[in-house]
């Protein structure tokens, strides 16, 4: 693998190798959580936190873990950070925590986190791993923010953030399908088209 610059390692997660829209991993949680823009904000934050810290720790101990035990150890590390995020949200962001429900603990099995741990953090230096985590996390977050924004706006006619309606489409009759399951797939299909266009593939 060529030695990429730090900026390239960061940038790749955002468009060229966007985890959700290009690599298409971690879709399950994204589909479920993007019914409301505010949810995606917190989910994105949690994913970035877990990804950056677990990449950091895994990269830190990468030379001391025996190969045969790496997956269980990755899981222990990832699960610990997810639990920390879970407890912190429960204490300080209770409203969002209640809405996100089971999806926060499910970050443990989000392929993105385990995937980056195995593919990158366990083979690269600490700082680079942190940057990779940050880039991937931001790419994931941008994707779900966009999906959440579109789905909430088109599906309910407004965007409600922290109990304040910040955008309203007035007399628009909402297309409820967007907040239901088929709408999730539709929205993501369009976002994938968008990413492919941004990547230059026609």
């Amino acid at each position: 693998m060529e030695d990429r610059s730090l900026w390239e390692e960061f940038k790749k997660g955002i468009i060229d190798e966007n985890p959700l829209l290009f690599m298409m991993i971690g879709l399950c949680a994204a589909l479920a959580v993007s019914t409301k823009f505010e949810n995606t904000l917190f989910m994105g934050g949690a994913v970035i936190f877990v990804l950056v810290f677990s990449n950091f720790v895994i990269s830190l101990i990468r030379n001391t873990i025996p190969t045969e035990m790496r997956i269980p150890i990755f899981i222990v590390v990832i699960a610990s950070f997810v639990t920390i995020a879970d407890l912190t949200m429960q204490a300080y962001f209770r409203a969002a925590y209640k809405r996100l429900g089971v999806w926060i603990p499910l970050i443990v099995v989000n392929c993105l986190i385990l995937g980056r741990a195995e593919a990158f953090a366990s083979r690269n230096k600490i700082f680079k791993s942190i940057i990779d985590g940050l880039g991937m996390g931001l790419g994931y977050t941008f994707a779900i923010l966009l999906a959440g924004f579109l789905r909430e706006l088109l599906g309910t006619g407004k965007i409600v953030l922290f109990e304040k309606t910040i955008i309203s489409l007035g007399s628009y009759d909402p297309a409820r399908i967007f907040i239901m399951f088929p709408g999730a797939f539709l929205t993501f299909a369009f976002l994938i088209v968008l990413i492919n266009w941004l990547r230059g593939v026609k």
Binding site: I65, M69, P72, V76, A79, S80, L87, T88, A91, Y92
Partner: peptide, 29 residues
Amino acid sequence: INKIITLFVVCLLASGGLAFTYAATKEKI
């Protein structure tokens, strides 16, 4: 033995971190 020790240390650190966070947030929760 090396492997056992490594796994043990990782789990110990993880539980330590978790116990700390749990205690720190328990009252607020």
